[in-house]
Design a protein around this nucleic acid. Sequence first.
DNA 1: GTCTATATTTGGATAGAC
DNA 2: GTCTATCCAAATATAGAC
Lengths: 197, 197
Amino acid sequence: MLGTAEKSTRAPRHEATRQRIVDEAWRQVRQHGLAGLSLRRLGSSVGMRAPSLYSYFVSKSSIYDAMFAQGWAECIAEVTPCVTASDRRGVLRQLARSFAAFSLRDPIRYQLMCQRVIPGYVPSPEAYAEAVEALELTISRLRGVGIDGPGDVDLWTALLTGLIDQQIANDLGGERWLRLIDDAVDMYVDRIDRRAK
Amino acid sequence: MLGTAEKSTRAPRHEATRQRIVDEAWRQVRQHGLAGLSLRRLGSSVGMRAPSLYSYFVSKSSIYDAMFAQGWAECIAEVTPCVTASDRRGVLRQLARSFAAFSLRDPIRYQLMCQRVIPGYVPSPEAYAEAVEALELTISRLRGVGIDGPGDVDLWTALLTGLIDQQIANDLGGERWLRLIDDAVDMYVDRIDRRAK
DNA sequence: GTCTATATTTGGATAGAC
DNA sequence: GTCTATCCAAATATAGAC
């Protein structure tokens, strides 16, 4: 009657417990992998039995949904304020560095947000909306420094996620690809500059 | 006594059955996801019970291993002959197009080969050797056209896998990132040229 | 080499008492 | 809202007969 499906301001305790469950779910996927989330273990870690979780989430997928949405919300909250420059190269550098730092601090979160890894799980439209908002913030940042050609944004996301994916898959904990970020930004900026002519 | 653990030329029938099992395993992961491979189902699809599979593979992981190695062997066999150009831009274009085509024709295979997605599975050293060989072939191709600076190869793999990852994750079946390949190659080549000065 | 039988563990989800 | 009890299904792997 009140809210949109699973959110309500009227039951703060309920909402707090939901959050505790999600927090613990993050802990568990970091330890056991994204697909290794178990309701029994999750329940017992927050002090209840598995069936009780169904008072807070209608299914296991809806827990992933809450995590997915939270991940993108955190991304928006953390990355956006990092971009303070106003010149093109500066904006791109800050964008790349802060998003890379955000992603590599929690590779499992990045996996849930940016890769299709859990068999059978597809983000709900509501959860996906958060991801769309993050992308739109990026798009508007790029437009602010004159980057809005067809494919320009897509090439940027590919370049940035490529560096991060490689870093995660082949040198987790190191900086083999991380240290190429400034090079990559320069390469990208030069291309934009050249196309402007 | 004879061979290296799991390979033998002396039992062609045995080897043929192994291959049938691996082929069927590919079919199943394409349908149920990488983590959705089940020994019961796999066995029954090749006309035997799950325990019989243990006559051919010591564990489920060793099936993934065989698939991993086969994927990289196929990559070597398919991508290498596609590169016939001798100029820098031509080589990079052929390399990028053929690897992208190879990857996108079978996204699940790409996932197994290039992303860490199966909880608890890590390629064995023998399986990984095939991946290393593929990378070395790429490195030598790049060196052949004068690309060998520190980070140059890493930036190339990041750029290429970034495009493919985005294509798979966000526009499977389309060509939104695929069509940026030539642009990306140009951007990369310009950077190399500029650094030469 | 293949089978049956089984060990052992685990999974998500529901019914219904309290 | 939480519990017990249970359903139902699935998983990998081993033992031992044939």
